[in-house]
Design a protein around this nucleic acid. Structure first.
Lengths: 107, 107
DNA sequence: TCTATTTATCGTAAAATTACGATGAATGGA
DNA sequence: TCCATTCATCGTAATTTTACGATAAATAGA
């Protein structure tokens, strides 16, 4: 999509869509859930947990990282991943902003 | 993805990912927001509002409909679309189920 | 009946996603 | 130093997404 098309959408809509897209795959949802549950969050552990190839998990982690949902810290040969609660909270706030109170069915 | 791979994921994770995927495009977020705001929700109005081709909007509406987020009722030559609050609430519930209280940063 | 309007669907092209093996970089330990 | 482990990235193939024009179906109204 070029520059013109980008102007079609409000920034907030793009934000919400981007965050939703990051969670638009069951593997990434599982990763987020696992990181929420787990304290230790070395990449290798995630690979064992989910059951996909290491390269694939690494790709999913990159998506989550780019969306700001997780962050990683190098620890020796490993990388420790954990939730970025700021972005996750932002996602929830955007959902709250939808305001479902107008629940008058029109059709 | 074949049958074996499907077993990799918990049903709840697939549900959340599917609903998130439906919102993973700014046009669809904009449509949902518009439908929440608007009472009148004829398809033609959405096309004018968003600024994409009619065929493209129809495709996005189909995605939202398949996800259960909206429903459509035929009214003469038009189709009246509106939010399905059940599915939208389900999405919010799934997010609430994530339980962010464990907010102890590990890295 | 004829025409205009609305909407879904088809066909299609371009781009993005997903998955994996292979490889390379970095580190820790023998 | 050498080897094993961990992780990111590259290259690639298959699939999905996205967008649009063209077209067909359905209805409302003249």
């Amino acid at each position: 999509m070029g520059l013109v098309k980008d102007k079609l959408y409000q920034q907030e809509d793009v934000q919400l869509a981007t965050l939703a897209k990051a969670l638009a795959h069951p593997a990434r949802v599982a990763i987020i859930k696992f990181l929420l549950k787990q304290k230790a969050c070395v990449c290798r552990t995630i690979v064992d947990e989910i059951g996909l190839a290491q390269a694939t998990i690494s790709q999913h982690l990159k998506v989550l990282k780019n969306a700001g949902l997780i962050q990683g810290t190098v620890e020796g040969t490993s990388v420790c991943y954990c939730i970025d609660y700021t972005a996750l909270q932002q996602l929830l706030d955007l959902f709250d902003g939808l305001d479902l109170t107008t629940s008058e069915q029109c059709c």
